[in-house]
């Protein structure tokens, strides 16, 4: 059943004329890992903010339609209630780190302190969360002395430690090297399999193809494609609109024109490409 539901959602930021989200309808089931793709400016971050309650509670502006998470309606809730169900990791970790804490350990405990979790449980949860994301050795460092990729892991960990039902991630690996990206996608996949719902704005098509259950494509504030990665990422609807595509898809499309790709479906992953090309 749907844990996240957006019905006819249209949203305008304050002092702007044009809506950033236009008539969005999106249902996400519990435990589903949904990747949101689209060129910059398509509305991916705004969609993340909307699910996470920052729109409209923090950013204000004009929200029409209904946003429901775990049975509660956004317009009838407070942000401090909302964040118990939904965690958001920002695109730029620098915007998320509190500035009030001297160490990574304290930074990650910050959210738990605010909801009054007992000390022993807090320590346990912080240690477990750091272990999960592989940052235990950073516990005593200042959050500001870290590289961009390390800061992104701290930002992610400080959300995971809250045990949200729904995890919203805005380009969580943009500043990481390939090994960091692989580890983070691996952790998120595991969490989704344990029942956490994940909505992730992301450009890295090959990783989405291998890890996400479903892809939602946004263009100029509207959903123009929604489906399984193989179908959505190869859809003709996305052509010419600034979407990133996998090199496998792109080369297979060219191969098809000259008769070197025989299948109807185009590949998005290495395995699909090997499968389709191996008998040529």
């Amino acid at each position: 059943m749907a844990i996240v539901s957006l019905q006819n959602v249209t949203y305008k930021y304050p002092l702007t004329d044009a809506p950033v989200l236009k008539n969005i309808n999106l249902q996400v089931n519990e435990g589903e890992f949904v990747a949101v793709i689209g060129p910059n400016g398509a509305g991916k971050s705004t969609l993340c903010y909307t699910v996470a309650g920052f729109v409209p509670h923090f950013f204000k502006g004009e929200l029409m339609g209904a946003v429901e998470v775990a049975g509660a309606e956004s317009s009838k809730s407070n942000l401090h209630e909302w964040v118990l169900n939904v965690g958001l990791a920002f695109q730029n970790p620098f915007n998320q780190i509190s500035g009030a804490k001297y160490t990574v350990f304290e930074e990650i405990a910050f959210g738990l302190e605010n909801i009054g979790v007992p000390r022993e449980e807090m320590i346990q949860r912080v240690n477990d969360a750091m272990k999960l994301t592989g940052i235990s050795e950073l516990a005593d460092r200042s959050p500001y002395s870290l590289s961009g990729g390390q800061q992104q892991r701290v930002a992610l960990t400080s959300i995971l430690v809250m045990h949200p039902k729904v995890l919203v991630l805005d380009e969580p690996t943009s500043q990481m090297d390939p090994i960091g990206t692989r580890e983070v996608f691996g952790v998120i996949r595991t969490l989704a399999e344990r029942g956490m719902t994940v909505i992730m704005a992301e450009h890295k098509v090959e990783w989405i193809a291998n890890f996400a259950d479903r892809v939602v494509a946004l263009h100029e504030g509207q959903i123009i494609e929604d489906g399984k990665p193989q179908e959505a990422l190869t859809s003709d609807v996305l052509a010419g609109k600034g979407f990133g595509i996998s090199r496998y898809t792109s080369v297979a499309r060219k191969a098809k024109e000259i008769g070197l790709w025989k299948k109807d479906k185009l590949p998005v992953t290495l395995e699909e490409a090997v499968e389709g090309f191996k008998n040529v």
Partner: peptide, 14 residues
Amino acid sequence: YVDPPQLTRLGKRL
């Protein structure tokens, strides 16, 4: 920890 490019890997596999 560098993976070869997508098409390089595909070429190798084929």
